[in-house]
Amino acid sequence: MSAIIASPAPDPSRRWVDRKYFLWLLSAAVPVIVCLSLATFTWLSRRWGIHGWTELALWLLPFLIYVVVPMGDMVFGDDRSNPPEEAMAALEASFYYRALLFAYTPVQYVVTIWCAWIVTSQALDVFGYAGAVLAAGGVNGLGINTAHELGHKAEAIDRWVSRLTLAPSAYGHFYVEHNRGHHLHVATPEDPASARMGESLWEFLPRTVWGSLVSAWRLERRRLNNHGCRAWSVRNQILQSWSMTILLFGSVTTAFGWPALLFLIVQALYAISLLETVNYLEHYGLARRRLPNGRYEPCRPVHSWNSSHVVSNLLLYHLQRHSDHHAHPRRRYQTLRHFDESPQLPAGYATMIVLAYVPPLWRRVMDRRVAAHYGGDLDRAAIKPGRRSVVEAGLDRGA
């Protein structure tokens, strides 16, 4: 299925076809698919009671994320084609692509509230409870990516929807830190969201979560001080975003009781872990050189790991074309381009997330790729302090 984008080039007969036009529905459809799984569970449990096999319906989303999408990437491979320059303006102007982002948020809220109702009203065992956490947290984790896409845009409505989308994951400060911190400091020691070679995911997670929070507050305090305001102000964008979370969590807790609050916190932690795991793999081991003037070299395509695997790119709004995103943060997802000079991941993000959960496997696959990217010169890579000998030993064993 495809749509035709008219070209503004002098020859009006020239047309470019977006062959993924309707396939972009995949990401927006994720919370709808989860709603169907929740409806299935509700129907089965009322008819047959709560059993392990009825609770399987709650596990549809993790099955899609960890099994179906990686298999889809293997089967359908990658897509390195880019829209022609003459089609970019029309692509950017098409409201269809933007509407898919807006459609995600209301259904995301439905999933979050529905899962909270299920865990507080049904006699779930640990298996069922975990399924509900992964369903809500998975939708909200993917929602952070939707918020990421909207948060970069100039339109005020896009930015407000971005912050609404972050509320169920309780990660509203991401709006500040990512836009004004990560994009400035990426692939440097100043960026808490850039992972270092030899650093496991489990070491990275507490460092990036705390570091991003501290960085976001520092950035927002500085912005407000420059405008003559105190940090603790109604104009503080972090406090505004956290207020949305408090309102949502408070309303759900009032409706379903205190167990709902525990559920909301646990699913938010899982959502945050999905985001930060993606951060872990996006810049692992990559470094920008410090110039003689003390500044870092400009961010270029070589400073982001990329993947053009088609299924996971459809799921994540081309997030895997990460180099172009860093070069042009306001470029909409449908126009992001593949760069051959960017370092390429061996698989899509869904597969790499699973790999990152197992540090020895991750290091075996990725450390040699980092080393190859720098022609074997590890002085050019970002290595976790104190880990160089361990990294070198691992590379020698894998040689």
Results as ranks from 00 to 15, higher is better:
Arg321Ser: 03
Gly52Ile: 03
Arg368Thr: 13
Arg19Lys: 10
Val69Ala: 02
Leu164Trp: 06
Gly198Cys: 04
Ile33His: 00
Pro385Val: 12
Gly386Trp: 02
Leu262Tyr: 11
Ser251Cys: 05
Leu224Ala: 05
Leu205Tyr: 04
Ala195Tyr: 07
Gly128Leu: 00
Pro8His: 08
Arg369Tyr: 05
Arg369Gln: 06
Ile353Arg: 01
Val75Ser: 04
Ala255Leu: 12
Ala287Cys: 14
Leu275Pro: 03
Ser194Cys: 11
Met74Asp: 08
Met352Cys: 13
Trp114Pro: 08
Asp79Ala: 05
Val126Arg: 01
Ala89Phe: 15
Leu247Pro: 04
Trp43Leu: 08
His328Asp: 11
Ser169Lys: 00
Leu25Tyr: 14
Ser212Val: 04
Glu203Gly: 12
Ser94Pro: 02
Pro360Val: 15
Tyr171Ile: 03
His152Ile: 06
Ser37Asp: 05
Ile4Phe: 03
Leu247Ala: 12
Gly128Ser: 01
Asn313Tyr: 07
Asp340Tyr: 05
Leu60Trp: 01
His322Arg: 06
Val30Ser: 00
Tyr333Cys: 02
Leu101Trp: 05
Leu315Pro: 05
Ala6Thr: 14
Trp59Pro: 00
Val391Pro: 01
Ala156Tyr: 06
Gln237Ala: 07
Gly394Pro: 03
Ile33Phe: 01
Val266Ala: 06
Leu361Pro: 14
Ile265Leu: 11
Gly172Gln: 04
Val370Arg: 01
His309Thr: 09
Leu261Gln: 03
Val75Trp: 09
Arg397Tyr: 14
Tyr171Ala: 07
Leu101Met: 14
Leu281Thr: 15
Ser194Gln: 06
Phe22Glu: 10
Leu262Ser: 09
His182Glu: 07
Asp73Thr: 09
Arg288Lys: 13
Ile33Pro: 00
Val69Arg: 00
Tyr280Ser: 14
Leu61Thr: 01
Ala381Pro: 07
Leu201Gln: 11
Arg337Thr: 15
Leu142Met: 13
His182Lys: 04
Ser200Gln: 09
Asp340Gly: 06
Asn225Ile: 12
Pro62Cys: 00
Arg196His: 10
Arg321Ile: 07
Ala130Tyr: 00
His51Cys: 04
Val139Met: 00
Ser45Thr: 05
His338Trp: 15
Arg159Thr: 12
Phe95Trp: 15
Glu86Thr: 13
Ile4Asp: 04
Ser215Leu: 09
Val266Lys: 01
Arg300Glu: 07
Leu38Ala: 01
His51Lys: 04
Ser389Asn: 02
Asn236Asp: 05
Ala231Gly: 14
Phe63Ala: 07
Ile157Thr: 03
Pro62Gln: 00
Leu184Thr: 11
Thr208Leu: 06
Arg207Leu: 13
Tyr109Pro: 01
Leu61Phe: 08
Val161Thr: 13
Ser273Phe: 12
Ala327Val: 13
Arg196Cys: 11
Asp367Leu: 12
Asp367Asn: 13
Leu36Thr: 13
Ser2Phe: 10
Thr188Cys: 07
Glu86Ser: 10
Arg387Trp: 04
Ser307Cys: 09
Ser94His: 14
Ser212Glu: 11
Ala399Tyr: 04
Trp114Phe: 15
Ala393Thr: 10
Cys299Tyr: 02
Val126Glu: 02
Ala9Gly: 06
Gly211Cys: 09
Ser233Leu: 08
Tyr296Asn: 11
Thr351Ala: 13
Asp73Leu: 02
